[in-house]
Simulated assay, not measured.
Amino acid sequence: MIGEESLQDLALKRKSMGLTQADLAAKCLVSVNTIKKWEHRKGTIKKEDILRYAKVLEVDPMQIIDPDHVFKHYSDRRDTETLRRVPTINAITDICMDLEPRRVENMYRFGNGQLEEQNQTKVTYKALEQNVQKYDLKINGVIRSDRDIEFFPENKKHTEEFYGILPDDYGYAMKVRGNHLYPLIRDNQRAFLKRAYAWSLFSGNFVIVKNKKGSFRIMQFRSNHKSIYLLPIDRADEKINEHQKRFLMKPEEEILFVIKLSGY
C-alpha cells in the first residue's frame, strides 16, 4: 500500500487545475465513480486510460503508475534541464526547412549515429544490413590515379545506382578507374570528396591539392605541429623527418577536398 500523502497527489493535482471530478471524468471519457477509484489508487487502469489521464493532468504517466517512485521516471534524468536549454524540435525543423534534402538526410543519419553511440549499439549483421540504402548517385568526375583527376562539366555528369551509406557533407562523388591508388581506393569504387576547411583537417587525411598550374593531385596531409607536409601516396607511410623537407606545403598550393570513402 502507498502512503496517505501519495493518495492525495492525483486529487490535489486535479484541484490545482481547477477541475472537478465530473470535469475530469468528461475529459477522460469515464464515469465520476471511476475517477474516484483512480484518485484512491483502487482498481486497474488500462493503458489508453493512463495516457489520457496523464495528458489531461499534464503529468508524466509514471507519476500515476509508480507513485512510490520504485522505478526511475523521465523527470529524474539529470540532464532534463540541459535538454530544455538546447534547440527545440521546432528549431531543428526550421533549420531542416532551409536545407537541401540530402543535407536533411545527413542530419537524420547523424542523429541516429549519436543515438547508436549513446546506447552503445552492437554492430551485428542485421544492424549493418538495415543501414544500407539505394541511391541514384550523381557522378561528378573520375579518378584514374593520384595525378589523373577529372572533374566532369555539367553536361557530362551522370547518375549511377549506389547501394551503401553516403558520407556526411560530401560535395562530389567520383568514380575510380584502375588500381593505381590501392589499397586506399579500389577499381570501380566511389570516392567522396568533402570540401576542406582549415579547422577540419587532420594529420593523415588524404586530400586533393591544386597547384599553381591548376592541376590536381591526391596527397596525404601531415602535420607535426610545427610544419605542414603534403606527401605523395607512395610515401604516405613514412615518418616525418628532416628528409621530408621537400614535401613541405608550398604557399601556392591549395587543399580543395578531403577524400572520404563510402560505407560498405
Rank of each mutant, 00 (worst) to 15 (best):
I2R: 14
K15E: 11
G18I: 12
A25Q: 07
V30E: 02
K36N: 13
W38N: 01
K47F: 14
D49K: 08
D49L: 06
A54W: 06
K55V: 05
K55S: 10
K55D: 06
I64E: 03
I65D: 04
I65E: 04
D66T: 01
F71N: 13
Y74M: 09
S75W: 05
S75I: 08
S75N: 12
I89A: 14
D98Q: 07
P101F: 01
P101S: 01
E105Q: 12
E105G: 01
R109D: 07
F110S: 10
E116S: 14
E117I: 04
K122W: 02
T124Y: 11
L128C: 05
N140M: 03
V142L: 12
D146P: 11
R147L: 10
D148I: 06
F152T: 03
P153V: 13
E154N: 09
E160C: 05
G164T: 01
Y172N: 04
A173P: 03
K175D: 14
V176F: 05
G178M: 06
L184G: 11
R190F: 06
A191K: 04
F192K: 03
L201G: 04
N211G: 10
F216N: 06
F216L: 15
R217C: 12
M219F: 05
Q220L: 01
F221Q: 00
N224R: 07
S227C: 04
I228Q: 02
Y229F: 15
P232H: 00
D234E: 15
D234H: 10
A236F: 06
E238T: 01
K239Y: 09
K239A: 15
E242F: 02
H243T: 08
R246W: 11
K250A: 12
K250R: 10
K250Y: 07
E253R: 01
V258I: 13
L261P: 01
L261Y: 03
Y264F: 12
Y264G: 03
